[in-house]
Design a protein around this nucleic acid. Structure first.
Length: 428
RNA sequence: CGGAGCGUAGCGCAGUCUGGUAGCGCAUCACGCUGGGGGUGUGAGGGUCGUGGGUUCAAAUCCCGCCGCUCCGACCA
């Protein structure tokens, strides 16, 4: 993408309303535009990140056996009356009426709808287990939206729902999602601590919140420092994580904590995922009955698993930024490479940069080419702000020696290379 | 919802107290110089001063209503 033809309204000055780093940086980097309180337009650069996160989540969900579908944003009051949550959910639910005066709502979550869908089609133990998910916009009319997309009213969430024949099987589904979540956050370049949480309903201890470590986090968490050493890539480590201590501020009790003081870490966390098992809470009102091998009928055992996709955009920035701007993890960066021509007055340099651009496109590298006739300093600052992992700078040495300068955003390291070597490095 | 503040150019703000031609910086446009860390000079464009009403010869400014946004607290992916 040529920057001259893109839509990237970056700003030098910090908007007054933004209080925390991620919000400021998202506004300055031209990723979002606030339409009204807690509701944002995703500008092109922000959308690319949102889509990348969504894609990683989808890939891992699919690998874990999830089946994607898509439920609507608008729901009828009827299904919520059936579960009893229409009254109990409170003012966070945005309610309105259609032209026939029927009560409608903008879905804050989808347990009711999915259970209704499931009950309509699945009747036999032979079809279980099932894990159905979608990634859809939700609306929760927060009392006070803040922190940009981290607590908006409209937000994109991946929510999955598992259906099993019995508790043992449901537990397997639960831990399968537990593992999947650790893998997802790892791929996103984050350290996520699974913290035991209240399951609210019938669920015993089967509920975890996934907290991203970041100074701007709203909750304080305590965890075994062994987490810092865990590589969430392999099965053993994930099994190991299940038994490590981690608790939120309100649940942590220093007196009864099984971890010694010197092994205990305290940090701020941003909640980006929440999983829980809730048994037959919804399968009963929706009559989601399953026939067992011996011909009996039981209610499906359910769990639900949420990831705040749009919140993650902010959370990742909170975990990855410096004074100059964002430092995107490669996996979610809106572009991999930012190409800068530092000598726009030199036709040879421009020609060289154009050729580099063409080559990168040809080999499938996502590149944002700052082809504007601007001073180098302005381009560098802008590129640092939007935080692409690699900066490729075409300067005088390009024309004279045929080498380009490579700057890595994450650590500021620089090297001079020929284009082919750089491409090889990227592909690895 | 309780407490507090703010709405003036795309962004950041001054002007409001004490009513009298709507301003500054950044950004934008034109031209010149400059050309490796947001450089510089000259010139230009851009405003229902959130909105409705009231007071007044005269309202961004004073009064009343409304709307919107933000901050502090309790809820949440």
């Amino acid at each position: 993408m040529r920057l001259s033809q893109y839509y990237l309204p970056t700003q030098r000055e910090t908007p007054a309303d933004a209080q925390i780093a991620s919000h400021r940086l998202m506004l300055r980097a031209g990723m979002i535009y606030q339409s009204t309180s807690g509701i944002y337009t995703w500008l092109p650069l922000g959308l690319r990140v949102l889509r990348k996160i969504e894609l990683i989540v989808r890939e891992e969900m699919d690998k874990a056996g999830g089946i994607e579908l898509l439920m609507p944003t608008i729901q009828s009051a009827e299904v919520w009356q059936r579960s009893g949550r229409y009254d109990s959910y409170g003012k966070e639910m945005l309610r309105f009426k259609d032209r026939h005066d029927r009560e409608m709502l903008y879905g804050p979550t989808n347990e009711e709808l999915i259970t209704e869908v499931f009950a309509q089609h699945i009747k036999s133990y032979r079809d279980l287990p099932k894990n159905l998910y979608h990634t859809q916009w939700k609306f929760r009319d927060e009392i006070r939206p803040r922190f940009g997309v981290m607590r908006g009213r409209e937000f994109l969430m991946k929510d999955a729902y598992s259906f099993d024949i019995d508790y043992e099987s449901a537990k397997k589904s639960y831990w399968n999602m537990f593992e999947t979540y650790l893998k997802i956050f790892k791929r996103l370049g984050l350290t996520a601590i699974p913290v035991r949480a209240d399951s609210g309903a019938i669920g015993g201890d089967l509920s975890h919140e996934f907290q991203i470590l970041a100074p701007a986090g709203e909750s304080t968490i305590y965890y075994d420092k062994a987490f810092d050493l865990v590589d969430f890539d392999n099965e053993e480590s994930i099994t190991q994580v299940q038994h490590l201590y981690a608790a939120a501020d309100e649940k942590h009790d220093a007196a009864s904590c099984p971890v010694s003081t010197e092994n205990l870490r305290q940090a701020k966390g941003i909640e980006v995922g929440h999983i829980f098992y809730f048994g037959t809470k919804y399968s009963e009102p929706f009559n989601a009955k399953i026939t067992t091998p011996d011909g009996k009928q039981v209610f499906a055992e359910m769990g639900s698993y949420g990831i705040g996709v749009s919140r993650l955009v902010g959370a990742i920035i909170e975990a990855c930024f410096d004074g100059e701007g964002i430092k995107w993890p490669t996996s979610v960066a809106p572009f991999q490479v930012g190409l800068i021509c530092a000598k726009t007055h030199d036709p040879k340099a421009v020609g060289f940069a154009d050729a580099v651009y063409a080559k990168l496109l040809e080999v499938g590298v996502e590149v944002l080419y700052d082809d504007r006739d601007d001073r180098p300093g302005a381009k560098f600052a802008n590129m640092d702000l939007i935080g692409l992992p690699w900066q490729v700078i075409v300067g005088s040495n390009a024309v004279e020696k045929g080498v380009i300068e490579i700057k890595q955003r994450v650590n500021g390291s620089r090297q001079e290379l020929d284009l082919t070597s750089f491409i090889n490095q990227l592909v690895v």
